[in-house]
């Protein structure tokens, strides 16, 4: 979905020019279509987003400043960053592992696994939260009681939030790496093997460098998704002020408490991060193709 930007063609070769000629031929339809698409995106995305920015800076930098002076908000922002860091880490490790498994190995049930990997993208975050609560809740979860008897609490604490976040962001990394792995094939690895490289060496020196960019996009997308997760976190976190309240929960809380300035300011911070993420992806991706 985040397949972005065609590389801008600066100087098209002559042949290309001739081939593209009919495309540039502009009829009224071209302009109508262009106008409709632009207007639609403007009304649906650009204008609302820009309003949040202007609302945030209604009173200058004061609202951002007061936000950063509020200890509870700072704790929430730190928690969000902490959770995002771990879920990116976990998803990167297992994402690479599962992708290798999916592309390089043949095993029964592979097609099912492949399809199931998309579940987190299409299941409601609330259902994700509920599912985790049912299994890991300290009171009556399937594993939760065993875990809490050894003093490890998952639900209503940080591990639960990390699990929920990891769950929803799971497919992003895999969906970025799998196509790259499929494309590079196994010839290079076989060559390395024939030259006596062991599995570790092959992975570090051949496979990893070639999927590097896939991993980078995956990390960026996972980061954006993790920071922004709301529904699943709301169910598993318990929303304890200063302890398990993440930045997205702060936005809701502030808005419902009629602290619109604070809500807009927090939303602005989150939006900045996610917009930065997609801009980064947009900028590095075309270079990769070239």
């Amino acid at each position: 979905m985040a397949d972005t930007l065609m590389p801008e063609i600066v100087e098209a070769p002559p042949v290309e020019e001739r081939r593209r000629a009919p495309r540039v031929g502009r009829t009224p339809t071209t302009y109508v279509l262009r106008f409709v698409a632009t207007a639609y995106l403007f009304l649906l995305v650009a204008w609302p987003v820009s309003l949040v920015v202007t609302r945030t800076f209604d009173g200058g930098f004061a609202s951002i400043q007061s936000l950063l002076e509020d200890p509870d908000t700072v704790v929430a922002l730190q928690l969000s960053a902490y959770v995002a860091f771990f879920s990116v880490l976990i998803n990167t490790l297992f994402g690479v592992g599962i992708s290798l498994l999916l592309v390089r190995q043949q095993f029964p049930g592979k097609r099912v696994l492949n399809a199931l990997l998309d579940i987190p993208l299409s299941v409601s975050p609330i259902v994700v939260g509920l599912a985790l609560v049912l299994v890991y809740s300290g009171r009556n979860g399937w594993f939760g009681s065993a875990l809490s008897s050894i003093g490890f609490q998952v639900i209503f604490s940080t591990p639960g939030i990390i699990m929920a976040t990891t769950f929803v962001a799971l497919p992003l990394m895999i969906r970025e790496i799998v196509p790259v792995l499929e494309e590079i094939g196994i010839e290079q690895e076989q060559a390395a093997q024939s030259l006596g490289a062991n599995a570790m060496q092959r992975f570090w020196r051949i496979t990893l460098p070639s999927i590097k960019w896939g991993i980078v996009y995956g990390v960026v997308l996972t980061l954006a998704r993790s920071l922004g997760e709301f529904g699943a976190v709301k169910v598993v976190s318990g929303n304890v002020l200063g302890q398990t309240r993440t930045a997205t929960l702060v936005v809701e809380e502030k808005y419902l408490n009629f602290d619109q300035q604070g809500a807009y300011a927090t939303a602005f911070l989150l939006a900045m991060v996610s917009v930065a993420c997609i801009v980064v992806v947009a900028i590095i991706r075309p270079k990769n193709h070239a």
Partner: peptide, 10 residues
């Protein structure tokens, strides 16, 4: 891509 990356609450 903004709607995809933007936190839903935002």
């Amino acid at each position: 891509d903004i709607p995809f990356a933007l936190p839903t609450i935002v």
